[in-house]
Design a protein around this nucleic acid. Structure first.
Lengths: 117, 117
DNA sequence: CAGGGGTATGTCAGTATTGACATACCCCTG
DNA sequence: CAGGGGTATGTCAATACTGACATACCCCTG
């Protein structure tokens, strides 16, 4: 599994659509990152909406403040799985998660990769 | 992280909406499993559509036949991440992935958990 | 300037996930 | 029955992810 490039990405304040392009990320990786960024910012805004601190959220998740911070910044050490689980903890339904991933403003056309039908 | 229960689930031929209920899975875990089942079956059907074997797909993914089998059966040892990555490899766009997760027929109403707004 | 609440970053030991491999289990067709 | 192509299941060493902890970095307000 290639993590090398992802580790390079010190992506913090991101605008959710303009990821990479200039780094040589494959389409798949790029999409994955995009998804993570989307969920991450959704998580952050949901937490802020409820006005709780990262530490409080951490407690409810059975995690730690530092990990919450990493989640919210879509740190390369957090898995999609954890993000989804956390959103679920805020009451996000499966359908809502799906919608988040789709995203309001579609951001980039993708032509598919090596094997599309 | 609790994996114990998930390991119990020898879920193979699943109808994507009727998961668990009778096992004491938390809502979050249940949703996660549902998502995985959905993506897994999508992956399988896409592979079949293109008429390639698990081994061929494995090669393209840089993985192995056994892992592909596990993915397609939503084995508890495969991550959401891997499923998404694999679907991406078939040319699935971010939006398509989102739609898959939403699912055609909504299956279950969820009332949210401890902290929803 | 000092302290404090909130957030970010780094590290680490424990756990989970991964690809590879072996092997078993189907069908088939001969 | 024998082989073979495809799929499933189990195991394992390597790698990735996780929570916890320490610590730094903001703001503030006093």
């Amino acid at each position: 599994m290639k993590v090398t490039k992802r580790n390079k990405l010190k992506n913090n304040g991101w605008v959710v659509g303009s990821t990479s392009d200039f780094l040589g990320l494959s389409d798949e990786e790029e999409m994955l990152i995009n998804i993570k960024l989307t969920l991450a910012s959704e998580l952050k805004s949901r937490r802020q909406q409820v006005k709780i601190t990262q530490s409080e959220l951490a407690k409810r998740l059975g995690s730690s403040q530092s990990r919450v911070a990493k989640m919210e910044s879509a740190d390369s050490s957090v898995s999609l799985e954890l993000l989804v689980r956390s959103l679920a903890c805020f009451g996000a339904s499966q359908a809502e998660i799906g919608k988040m991933i789709i995203g309001k403003k579609s951001v980039k056309k993708k032509q598919q990769s090596t094997m599309a039908k």
